[in-house]
């Protein structure tokens, strides 16, 4: 594992911790898209089916379990916690995420490493992760004002993707036979979706003003 990959994983972990912190400290999930959170929970459940079949490292296994548990806990909290669920911006979170699900699954059936149950679900999880942030970005754009923790949550998610790209570039030059086009192309698409957000995040950071997205 190289430093970029590790930094990416830590950014991913940090984003989840920031989100948990926001929900617990403020007892509110305003500005957070339940649809995006549901998609992420599904991404991890579909991808880590290999927990039962392949062992890579203790690090990998622990991280997989952390991602599964934390993402399902966030969804549970937003849906079931008496206080938290009242702050959910349901009327703003209207992105039709079932289309993303259907399209990702159809693509996974067509483009995969191997036509097996596990590989199809792996490809599905990669495609779904690439677009899972869309409901969240749409929700932020609709609400206009973004609170600090929500802004940081999306920032760390984007940073995680950026480090994964550096990791792939590094692996491409240091490893023989490094070719994983499905993950790399999907990863590029996923990172590109954050470009707009990063631009406004940078502007607000530079001017030391509250993050505001244009309508």
């Amino acid at each position: 594992m190289n430093i970029f990959r590790f930094a990416g994983d830590m950014m991913h972990l940090t984003s989840i911790l920031v989100l948990l912190l926001k929900i617990y400290a403020t007892k509110s999930c305003s500005g957070i898209s339940l649809k995006t959170q549901e998609l992420y929970a599904l991404v991890f459940l579909a991808r880590y089916l290999d927990l039962f079949t392949d062992f890579i490292s203790v690090y990998n296994t622990i991280m997989k379990l952390v991602f599964i548990v934390s993402s399902t806990a966030i969804v549970w909290c937003m849906k079931r916690d008496r206080v938290v669920r009242r702050s959910y911006d349901k009327q703003l979170d209207t992105f039709r995420h079932y289309f993303l699900l259907a399209a990702s699954f159809a693509l996974a059936l067509l483009v995969n490493e191997k036509f097996t149950f596990q590989e199809i679900f792996w490809a599905f999880s990669i495609y779904l992760e690439a677009v899972a942030i869309l409901p969240q970005l749409v929700l932020l754009q609709r609400s206009g004002n973004v609170d600090n923790l929500t802004g940081q949550y999306v920032f760390f998610l984007g940073a995680y993707r950026a480090f994964y790209i550096l990791n792939w570039i590094y692996r491409y030059f240091t490893e023989t036979h490094f070719s994983r086009w499905i993950a790399c192309i999907s990863g590029l698409v996923q990172t590109a979706l954050y470009a707009d957000f990063f631009y406004y995040y940078y502007i607000s950071w530079k001017n030391n003003t509250k993050l505001k997205l244009p309508a």
Binding site: D9, H12, I56, N60, M63, K64, R180, A183
Partner: peptide, 10 residues
């Protein structure tokens, strides 16, 4: 795909 650790990323 023959690589045993093909899916070694998270």
């Amino acid at each position: 795909v023959s690589d045993r650790n093909y899916h070694d990323e998270l």
